[in-house]
């Protein structure tokens, strides 16, 4: 056991206070949004709400979930997450397997490593990138949200490092038994790499769920905006001009929910799915972060 001097106890007390303070500061803002979103509009507008709903009601959520634009954006986000994760994972696996091979097993291995690496240290910047996506005819389609970011070098590094740690003998003996690269990858490497794959799926899910910039500049019709781009436009930039299709009835319904509670409900819906799952998946994330900090 550690020494328990007076100073030691004081230090331990300080540690608890420090951690509790950090933890509370980290969660307060989101609890506040949660509280406002369930409060009555008058209570929210007069600033009475801090960490608990005042005048509990669900009208903001009803309004948000009946708003066709919000729902459309929500669906775009679901679609981009599903498609984006599948495409990312396929590309990452096919890139990581060859690159995990020794120099003798892949001819020109160093050339490929440099080929990937140069893209990290130098980039053309926003404008040429935007023009390329435009030239490829991807604008305003869901593929514009998926293809340009489909193969992050960071993910390839994580997976190829993991592949390298697998005992080489397994692959070699399968090779002698006549297995080709496809079956070695599919039957041996992938089943053994579940922790790394889970980590990458999570990183990619969160990345796609939270992306907003690509939707904002690559989607020309607002009903193709993913959720975060939609919220960016109406809440952060407070620009309603793109979405002025509201009918008289909608405007009337809007007057019953305050702008503030409605926005809070939308913010909370946009953050909730990830907040609901991340504590359970946190250990994978932590592994991924540590793995990613090891050089490839």
């Amino acid at each position: 056991m550690h020494h328990r001097s007076f100073g030691g106890k004081l230090f331990e007390g300080f540690n608890y206070v420090f951690l509790v303070a950090c933890a509370l500061l980290c969660i307060f803002p989101i609890i506040h949004v949660f509280a406002v979103s369930f409060s009555s509009s008058t209570a929210a507008a007069s600033g009475q709400v801090t960490l608990w709903p005042v005048g509990f009601n669900l009208s903001s959520y009803k309004y948000a979930l009946n708003n066709p634009q919000f729902l459309a954006s929500f669906l775009v986000t679901l679609k981009r997450v599903a498609l984006g994760v599948s495409v990312n994972m396929l590309l990452t696996i096919f890139a990581a397997y060859p690159l995990s091979k020794e120099r003798g097993d892949l001819f020109g291995r160093n050339v490929y490593s440099w080929y990937l690496f140069i893209t990290i240290i130098f980039s053309g910047g926003l404008i040429p990138w935007y023009m390329t996506v435009n030239q490829l005819g991807l604008m305003d389609s869901v593929w514009a949200l998926i293809l340009p970011g489909a193969l992050p070098v960071f993910n390839v590094l994580i997976l190829l490092n993991f592949f390298r740690q697998l005992p080489k003998e397994i692959g070699e003996s399968a090779f002698i038994d006549g297995a080709g690269h496809w079956s070695i990858l599919g039957r041996i490497y992938l089943p053994l790499s579940k922790p790394a794959l889970a980590t990458l799926v999570l990183f990619t899910c969160v990345g796609h769920w939270n992306s907003w910039f690509d939707g904002l500049i690559l989607m020309s019709s607002p009903h193709h905006y993913p959720l975060q781009s939609y919220l960016q436009t109406i809440i952060v930039n407070r620009d309603m001009s793109l979405f002025t299709t509201a009918s008289q009835e909608e405007l009337k319904a809007l007057s019953q929910v305050s702008d503030r509670t409605l926005k809070s409900a939308q913010i909370f819906i946009a953050a909730a799915p990830i907040l609901a799952v991340y504590p359970f998946l946190q250990k994978y994330f932590m592994k991924g972060i540590v793995m990613g900090s090891v050089k490839g």
Partner: peptide, 19 residues
């Protein structure tokens, strides 16, 4: 404590800006 401290990492900048 660690889960709580990790929470902001998972929130998008859009949501942070709105909050």
């Amino acid at each position: 404590a660690q889960s709580a401290m990790f929470l902001p990492y998972f929130i998008s900048w859009v949501v942070v800006g709105a909050i």
